[in-house]
């Protein structure tokens, strides 16, 4: 009794090749679905994301490079200004010391003249 039932079940569940008509209908449906606008929309969704990345990355790189260049130029400008200021300080002190020396020479000449007059030279 049980063997009979088992053989009947095996017969019923035996893999059967689909009919040609069923296969054609299935393939038709699959093809139609793949080319449908909804499917295309879903498939194309990663594109805008990747495009945004390719636009953002060079832009970020450009901003970084521009910032670096600007920083470098600013440092160069400051250095040039600093060197100019240094040169001016040296020059100003040089001029001042030269003129102080002029006064020193005059004072010394005058002092030696006084000494000579005092000693009767």
């Amino acid at each position: 009794m049980s063997e009979n039932l088992e053989s009947k079940l095996q017969d019923a569940l035996r893999p059967v090749a689909p009919s040609d008509e069923f296969s054609r209908a299935l393939l038709k449906r699959v093809t139609a679905t793949r080319h449908s606008p909804a499917h295309l929309e879903r498939a194309g969704r990663p594109w805008p994301r990747s495009a945004a990345w390719w636009v953002a990355a060079p832009f970020a790189a450009f901003v970084l490079i521009a910032f670096g260049v600007q920083h470098h130029l600013q440092a160069e400008r400051e250095r040039a200004l600093g060197m100019q200021a240094r040169h001016q300080v040296i020059e100003a002190l040089h001029v001042t010391s030269q003129k102080l020396d002029l006064a020193y020479q005059a004072v010394r000449t005058q002092s030696s003249a006084f000494v000579e007059a005092d000693t009767g030279v």
Binding site: R79, L81, G82, A85, R86, Q88, V89, E91, A92, V95
Partner: peptide, 18 residues
Amino acid sequence: STTISLDSSMLALAGRFL
């Protein structure tokens, strides 16, 4: 002719390069 005008900020800047 020599014209030099160095205020405190310029002197401070020059000091960094001496």
